[in-house]
Design a protein around this nucleic acid. Structure first.
Length: 467
RNA sequence: GGCGGCAUAGCCAAGCGGUAAGGCCAGGGACUGCAACUCCCUUACCACCGGUUCGAGUCCGGUUGCCGCCUCCA
């Protein structure tokens, strides 16, 4: 069984077949950098980072590209308001973006192309569109002739006529048709601009992705992804531009993730009800945030609230504890178990279940439930009188490996050593317990608890953790 | 007006025709000197009404209620 991906283009799950065997070209629409990202912006970053991880887990060589939109109206407006150069502003928020996504356990893309570094390519691309009759210049602007492109609407499944009825589209005196959209926008005095055959100006929004995807990945890519709201018009327009220019299919698979809601309302910058990653990650363990987002299938909406985050935190703790439990046991156990095969078989079965879940359009919710099954299995095994290193090592290896595909670290890098006085107290308590001086033992335990240290007495000795 | 999505236990959430995964919370039990950790047990007439089928959260039709896109937006 291979991977199946829900393709917005066909509205069906389809077996994933890459253009080139063993390789995946993936383009994810990135942020417009004029502010910190909010958790709604973070969802696609986390989701597609996970998709990338899983594709790599399955042995694909993934070329993952995500752009920065580093010039547009909102950026110019914000820069003006702050009295800052456009370049300074975008540089600052690109840095903030990386800091945020790193905290969320997301890797950088293989390439992060920026609009301002591809102006020449964009101009050349637009020129071809004009030559082919798909675009026209009008008073310094260049527009795409939407009706000229036959497949327009195939992604969002809208017909051109229905779109016209929608009629919230601005007429625009310079356009031949209300449906036409901007490829090149002439500059107002004082605005950042580049020279072009049509005068000073800057690229429209949609053109950048068509151009950069092609420059970095080629005419046809395997997976193009982004938030649901990009389906129309952004991705629809990208298809129109790219396929008119390249005469080839632009992307084989289109993936779109659902929104994050707050109190069942869409979170968005325009509504003002957003939560910045930069703020929330100071209060909430960012790994919990990631776990929370992956606990729902990526195409479904997620409602965000403190209660749900807390519940997610407790769930993730369970996984971390299971990992700690098996790690701890491994430090003290010699080979003395039997029935090794049956346990190794169960672990293998869990791995299979994990893969089945992820193969099915990256069903991380089910994949996580497999992680919980594995955690319970592992804890159950630890309750056996005799344990075998081979089995313990299988648990100790499999649990973080699969969690790692989801970008969860299970805290294995956090090995922490107790300070000497803590160690002394723990030792003193052990003595007290041996002498059945439980009053003193409990006193010490409470004392440590005050310091945020929780003791756990296992068969293999005392263990502690931060509570 | 056009296109689309959703409605499953107190909460979250899988499920894609064969007698309802998983997590959180709660209650009970085991383990423990007591705890902690862990394990076991307990809780669903799947929004409503029709239909198809031997059999339907699961397919079809309808009703109700939410939500999204059609405008910058992840």
């Amino acid at each position: 069984m291979g991977i199946e991906i829900y393709n917005t283009l066909t509205r069906k799950k389809e077996p994933f077949v890459p253009i080139e065997e063993g390789k995946v070209k993936m383009y994810v629409c990135g942020p417009t950098v004029y502010n910190y990202i909010h958790i709604g912006n973070a969802r696609p970053v986390i989701v597609y980072d996970t998709v990338r991880n899983y594709l790599e887990y399955k042995g694909f060589d993934v070329n993952y590209v995500s752009n920065f939109t580093d010039v547009d109206d909102k950026i110019i407006k914000t820069a003006n308001e702050l009295g800052e150069e456009v370049g300074e502003l975008t540089e600052r928020f690109i840095g903030a973006y990386f800091a945020d996504i790193e905290a969320l356990g997301c890797r950088h893309a293989d390439e992060h192309p920026r609009v301002t570094e591809h102006i020449d390519d964009i101009i050349a691309f637009i020129t071809v569109l004009i030559d082919k009759g798909y675009a026209y210049e009008s008073e310094g602007d260049v527009y795409y002739r939407t009706r000229k492109f036959d497949g327009y609407g195939k992604l969002s499944h809208q017909s051109i006529d229905e779109l016209k009825v929608g009629a919230r589209i601005h007429p625009g005196e310079k356009k031949d048709d209300a449906l036409d959209f901007t490829l090149w926008k002439s500059a107002k005095p004082g605005e950042i601009s580049w020279d072009s055959p049509w005068g000073k100006g800057r690229p429209g929004w949609h053109i950048e992705c068509s151009v950069m995807a092609r420059e970095v990945l080629g005419d046809t890519i395997d997976i193009h992804a982004g938030g649901q709201d990009l389906t129309f018009p952004h991705h629809e327009n990208e298809i129109a531009q790219s396929e008119a220019h390249n005469d080839k299919t632009f992307a084989n698979y289109w993936m779109h993730n659902g929104y994050i809601n707050i109190d069942n309302e869409k979170m968005s910058k325009s509504l003002g009800n957003f939560v910045l990653v930069n703020d929330i990650r100071k209060k909430v363990d960012p790994e919990v945030l990631r776990f929370f987002m992956l606990s729902v299938h990526y195409r479904n909406p997620i409602n965000f609230s403190e209660e749900l985050i807390e519940s997610a935190a407790n769930g993730l703790d369970r996984l971390r504890t299971a990992f700690r439990n098996v790690s701890h046991r491994l430090e003290t156990t010699a080979d003395n178990g039997d029935q090794t095969d049956i346990w190794l078989y169960k672990i293998g079965k869990a791995r299979k279940a994990f893969e089945e879940a992820m193969d099915d359009d990256f069903n991380t919710a089910n994949a996580i439930s497999v992680l919980f099954d594995l955690a319970r299995l592992s804890n159950t095994y630890l309750n056996e009188k005799n344990t075998e290193r081979a089995v313990l090592e299988a648990f100790r290896g499999t649990l973080p490996e699969l969690a790692g595909v989801l970008g969860l670290r299970l805290g294995d890098a956090q090995a922490e050593f107790p300070s000497e006085d803590i160690e002394a107290l723990i030792e003193e308590r052990e003595q007290a317990r041996k002498n059945r001086d439980f009053a003193r033992a409990d006193e010490i335990r409470d004392e440590l608890l005050d310091q945020g240290i929780v003791l756990e007495d296992t068969r293999q000795g005392v263990r502690w953790k931060r509570g």
